[in-house]
């Protein structure tokens, strides 16, 4: 079995995986980082979004061996020293979730959006979330949360 090494949430990790192991399986099953969810298995829902070398990707659309040597950030890596990331805080404050299943992917996508566009308008936020599906909220409070986070991260 191939061996993979990567940095996940700042921690160096290695593991032996079958070649066909998806990155999301490696994160959930080998590293027990179950905050990254699997919603659809067909690269559509976005519940599994993580950052690989700073860019948001669907971790069901990548093999673990393809992330060999990469810097990976998952939802577990956002909070620092017990303090929620401003995006997580904004989702909490604005009730940007109901069942919470899509939330890890939503938050990781939204963080990537603000890295690229610190001041998005509502249309840009909604367009960015095309690949993140939420079946509960109707997106209204998610958009509000991202606007709040953008404001608080600027200040």
């Amino acid at each position: 079995m191939p061996s993979v090494s990567m940095t996940v949430n700042g921690r160096a990790v290695t593991g032996d995986v079958e070649g066909r192991t998806l990155l999301v399986q490696f994160l959930r099953e080998n590293l027990s980082l179950t905050g990254t969810h699997v919603g659809c298995d067909t690269s559509q829902c976005g519940a599994c979004v993580v950052h690989v070398n700073g860019e948001s990707v669907k971790s069901c659309t990548m093999l673990a061996v393809q992330a060999d040597g990469a810097e990976v950030t998952t939802i577990e890596g956002l909070a620092k020293d017990g303090e929620l990331h401003p995006m997580q805080e904004a989702f909490r404050e604005n009730h940007g979730l109901q069942c919470g299943f899509c939330t890890p992917g939503m938050v990781m996508s939204a963080v990537d959006l603000l890295q690229k566009n610190p001041n998005p308008d509502e249309g840009e936020i909604r367009e960015w979330l095309e690949g993140n599906i939420c079946r509960c909220t109707g997106y209204h409070n998610i958009v509000k949360a991202i606007q709040t986070a953008a404001a608080s991260m600027k200040g």
Binding site: Q44, S56, V57, K58, T61, M62, S109, W128, G131
Partner: peptide
């Protein structure tokens, strides 16, 4: 082509 993450990959 899909959403942003699909366009990234």
């Amino acid at each position: 082509v899909g959403g942003v993450q699909i366009q990234n990959a």
